[in-house]
Simulated assay, not measured.
Amino acid sequence: MDRSPRVLPASARRVVAEGNLGYLEGARWHRGALWFSDMTRRKVCRMVPGRQVEDVADVPGVPSGLGFAPDGTPMVVSLGDGRLLGVKDDELEELADLAPVAFHPNDMAVDREGRAYVGPQGYEFGSDPIGVGLIICHPDGRIETGGEDLIFPNGIVISGDGRTLVVAESFRAPRSRLTAFDVVDGGALVNQRVFAEFGSPDIESVDGIAIDSEGAIWAGFPWIGEFRRVREGGEITDIIRIEPDKTVYPDGGAFAVDSVLGGPDLHTLYLLISDTNPERLVNGFDATGRIEAIDVEVPGLPD
């Protein structure tokens, strides 16, 4: 039986947003709209399919991971000043100060009880990587850690039944990987294990991830401009290859950053893509972003 991954044709994709967009992260589907962070412009954004992107909130500290409280309140990680914020009536409210326990908190997933699982970068680029745990922010204000020795925990997702959490370890050497946990009552993380491994983080660094209704992961690989659908154990079933827009940055690439499943029937995979290069990226997230969409067979999870 041929188990080679399918390469989905570029003709199946469509551009749904472009123009005044920068480096895009934190893709989430919520109540009929795509939400994401524009790190270049320091905005939390929202897009209803068929409409223009709207800016929801300014986050001076650079917005990153997004999630939603049980009452629908948007939650965003402010990377630069290490805070977890709520967006209420277009204003920002501090929910937790993460700076004392997390160096450069980044991506996030929020469960149905309102617990926020946040991945801290853990170390400065250029220095030796430091293994860290995820930060768990409970609705009552308690802050705990979960897991250990995670190297640059990045994209984070939670399964439909709330019992499995998967996190991307972007710069785990010698191979980047996805790491899974069981989530027990009360939100603690146990049974840390490898979900899938890839190649060298210098080439196959894994970034943002999305989860579908079968528990497979759509993962972005920014350095090579690919999105891959991966099952637990490492089988790759589908590949989407993104070509850079050389009219934007002639020496740059198409960074396949993040994705999420949404749309009316949850069969639309939204792809967050940024044309940039490493030098521009570290210089204030200098990038030109766009959002593409493609219809896929396995749907996402209801919000």
Results as ranks from 00 to 15, higher is better:
2 D>V: 11
3 R>D: 11
4 S>P: 01
6 R>F: 07
11 S>D: 05
16 V>T: 00
21 L>T: 00
27 A>R: 09
30 H>F: 04
35 W>Q: 12
36 F>P: 00
37 S>Y: 03
41 R>Y: 15
42 R>L: 06
43 K>A: 15
48 V>D: 04
63 P>S: 13
65 G>T: 12
66 L>C: 10
67 G>N: 15
79 L>S: 08
83 R>S: 12
85 L>W: 09
93 E>A: 04
94 E>T: 12
97 D>F: 02
101 V>T: 05
101 V>I: 02
106 N>M: 05
108 M>S: 04
115 R>K: 10
118 V>E: 05
123 Y>T: 03
125 F>M: 14
125 F>N: 14
126 G>I: 12
135 I>S: 12
135 I>V: 15
135 I>N: 11
136 I>H: 13
137 C>W: 09
138 H>G: 04
153 P>M: 11
159 S>T: 06
173 A>V: 06
174 P>H: 04
181 F>W: 07
182 D>G: 02
188 A>H: 06
190 V>W: 06
191 N>L: 02
193 R>Q: 08
195 F>P: 04
196 A>V: 06
201 P>F: 10
203 I>G: 02
207 D>A: 13
208 G>F: 09
209 I>T: 10
211 I>Y: 06
214 E>Q: 14
216 A>C: 15
220 G>V: 09
242 I>V: 08
246 K>F: 01
248 V>L: 14
249 Y>P: 00
250 P>Y: 13
253 G>N: 06
255 F>Y: 15
256 A>N: 01
261 L>H: 15
261 L>G: 04
265 D>S: 05
265 D>G: 05
270 Y>F: 10
271 L>C: 04
272 L>D: 01
274 S>C: 11
274 S>W: 02
277 N>G: 04
288 T>H: 07
294 I>D: 00
299 P>G: 01
300 G>Y: 02
300 G>D: 02
303 D>Q: 09
